[in-house]
Amino acid sequence: MEVDKGKGEAEETRKVAEADRDTVTLKSSDGKLFEVSKEAAARLSTVLAGMIAGGSIDDNGTDLKQIGSEALENVVDYCNKHANSIPSAALISSSISFNTAPFKEPEEWERKFVDRLSHDALFDLVEAANFLGMERLLDVTCHKISEMMKGKSPDQIREVFNIKNDYTKEELEEIRQELAWAFYDD
């Protein structure tokens, strides 16, 4: 009885502590743990917001099996460092102009944030942002990738991204003809 009571109390205090905690712990696919402010996570990621609201956050590390540690580190870095300067997703959607939502250019620090990443890290981050429903981070990373493609010929793009040309010569010629309009400025 005594032991049970003590256990119950411990449970209670643990629960209180959990409710009071202002961070959430995330676990990457390879088992590493990361802490991120609950407020920032809920504000920047629709998926995490849903998990927090739904109480499916595990105190010992919420499993995010789809995200590697490197990408998760970047995500957490993005949240922690810049949480304060980003309007929440709710804010953005409430202030939608009459126009179709225009893409807002990345800010200086966001540029720097993605510029320092390697290709692999960048692509992992895009996927992580997509998985976690982080609209702004997705925008910023997609923008970065599109910047990397801009002003380059198909050959140059293949080289940059290591894409293998698996067309036959005939197929290539056919597509080129079809897309003649897109090659006028070459």
Partner: peptide, 28 residues
């Protein structure tokens, strides 16, 4: 790795490119 990204991300990236450049990616 870029080709491994899901279609929805790649199409988003393409929509950020000028139209001719986006269409030209078909040749990749």
């Amino acid at each position: 790795y870029i080709s491994l990204l899901p279609d929805c991300i790649l199409t988003t990236i393409l929509s950020l490119l000028p139209l001719p450049a986006a269409a030209r990616t078909q040749i990749l």
